Computed example of a mutant assay.
Amino acid sequence: MVTTTYQVQGMTCGHCVSAVSAEVGAVAGVSDVQVDLATGQVTVTSDGPLETSAVRSAVDEAGYDLVGE
């Protein structure tokens, strides 16, 4: 298992958390997504290392921006 924390910009409410969790959770290999709304941190647990581009695409699909990377 690999745990990676990403910084996501633009989340402001519970709906934001749900949208990001659903999209990132749909990425192949992801087993758990924890979102900290206060800090904008999204902690992803996966079977192996994830392509940052796949996570970025999922966050974009939810309507938010992945910071850095």
Rank of each mutant, 00 (worst) to 15 (best):
M1Q: 13
M1E: 13
M1N: 14
V2F: 13
V2I: 12
V2R: 08
V2G: 06
V2L: 09
T3E: 13
T3C: 07
T3M: 09
T5K: 07
T5G: 09
Y6D: 05
Y6I: 11
Q7R: 10
Q7M: 12
Q7H: 07
V8A: 01
V8K: 00
Q9D: 10
Q9S: 11
G10M: 00
G10W: 00
M11A: 00
M11E: 01
T12E: 10
T12I: 10
T12M: 06
G14M: 06
G14S: 08
H15D: 12
H15A: 13
H15K: 14
C16D: 06
V17Q: 03
S18K: 14
S18R: 12
A19L: 14
A19M: 10
V20R: 00
V20W: 00
V20M: 03
S21T: 15
A22R: 13
A22F: 11
A22Q: 14
A22Y: 08
E23G: 08
V24P: 00
V24Y: 04
V24I: 09
G25L: 09
G25Y: 03
A26F: 05
V27M: 12
V27G: 05
A28N: 14
A28D: 15
A28G: 15
A28R: 11
A28K: 15
G29C: 08
G29H: 05
G29L: 10
V30C: 05
V30T: 04
V30Q: 05
S31G: 14
S31R: 15
S31W: 09
D32R: 14
V33W: 01
Q34S: 15
Q34R: 12
Q34I: 13
V35Y: 02
V35N: 03
V35R: 01
V35I: 12
V35L: 04
D36W: 06
D36Q: 13
D36G: 03
L37A: 03
L37G: 02
A38V: 04
A38Y: 03
A38R: 05
T39H: 06
G40E: 00
G40R: 00
G40N: 01
Q41T: 12
V42D: 00
V42G: 01
T43A: 13
T43S: 13
V44I: 12
V44K: 00
V44E: 02
V44H: 01
T45R: 13
T45I: 08
T45Y: 07
S46A: 15
S46D: 10
S46Y: 07
D47R: 12
G48K: 15
G48N: 14
P49T: 09
P49I: 08
L50H: 07
E51A: 15
E51V: 11
E51H: 07
T52I: 14
S53A: 15
S53M: 11
A54Q: 15
V55K: 00
V55C: 01
V55Q: 02
R56V: 14
R56P: 11
S57M: 11
A58T: 08
A58L: 04
V59D: 01
V59W: 01
V59G: 00
V59M: 08
D60M: 04
E61K: 15
E61W: 01
E61I: 06
A62F: 04
A62T: 04
A62E: 07
A62S: 13
A62L: 09
A62V: 03
G63R: 03
G63D: 04
Y64K: 03
Y64S: 01
D65I: 08
D65S: 14
D65Q: 09
L66H: 02
L66N: 00
L66T: 03
G68R: 11
G68F: 09
E69G: 15
E69P: 14
E69K: 12
